[in-house]
Design a protein around this nucleic acid. Structure first.
Lengths: 154, 154
DNA sequence: ACAATAGCTATGGTATATCATGGGATTTTA
DNA sequence: TAAAATCCCATGATATACCATAGCTATTGT
């Protein structure tokens, strides 16, 4: 049986002078049975950081391994990019991680970081950029709404 | 094996100054075998809060995972909207949850909250808004009634 | 059939634990 | 040995857990 774990909610935390950020406690709770670290990498398409459990990347690797179709080759390349970029970030007893310059710069994060749950993954944004992105997504979703609610009448 | 559970009935409870509300005991009974928390998020289309079991959202996460690839943009937008907004709300031994400002504001809830069962999900409304919405739905249903019943059972 | 009672629910109030955050001390690395 | 990273403790704010009460429902007994 698979344990249910989902990264959820949107939380804004401070980044202090040393580059430290508190990982939201809900996020830690998900991880803490397995380990005390998460994996982060630069998003391929957006100016934000992506994070997940090492387990999730492991599953991605396994999927690529077992897939033989043509499209997997393209995905294989993307996967390489992710694995080349990804790094473990352990958090201390107070629940903080220290993000690297590279990641912070990619996301344009300085004083504050917004954690956005995405289910199996999460993202870390600069607050202003996230506000814009959220508005964009909501507008987009409103246009295509019917496709968003396949389970409504289950 | 799948356990039968349905959120049903319509119940109005008080919301105190801190934003605490008693989750209807019937709802709690459904959850308590699995955990002691529910998940709530803003409805995408209506001025109300939606609630369900984490399990239900987990199924959605799994569906998204299986129907789109890891790097899909569609997946990005959808997961951001749903999981970025959702949050776990644990209830204590007296059965209360504490709703966030964001949710209460979206639904226009101040003193009282109406819980409306919807099967696998439920909604939480401002009483006046719910009265209007219910009237609207009833009228709508009446218009379409003939198509709701199979002819042979007339 | 009616009254007493026991159990549960909703709700108000309060104490406790937890979280995010700041700062200092210690260790590591370049 | 200077700079950076890690660890540890302190603190204020906030959420959580717990206790108490009042009202309702169903049950029991006479």
């Amino acid at each position: 049986m698979r344990k249910v774990f989902l990264f959820m909610d949107t939380i804004c935390n401070k980044v202090d002078g040393k580059g430290r950020v508190s990982l939201p406690s809900d996020y830690r709770a998900i991880v803490k049975d397995l380990s005390s670290e998460i994996v982060c990498y630069r998003s391929l398409s957006l100016p934000c950081i992506e994070g997940c459990l090492e387990e999730t990347l492991d599953k991605l690797a396994a999927d690529i391994e077992n897939s033989t179709d043509f499209f997997s080759e393209a995905q294989d390349n993307l996967t390489n990019l992710v694995f080349g970029d990804a790094k473990r970030f352990p958090f201390d007893s107070t629940g903080r991680i220290m993000l690297s310059e590279k990641l912070l710069k990619h996301a344009g994060i300085t004083n504050e970081a917004v954690f956005v749950g995405k289910g199996r993954k999460f993202q870390i944004w600069n607050p202003e950029n996230w506000a814009k992105e959220e508005a964009r997504i909501r507008a987009e979703a409103l246009k295509n709404r019917p496709s968003l609610k396949p389970k409504e009448n289950e």
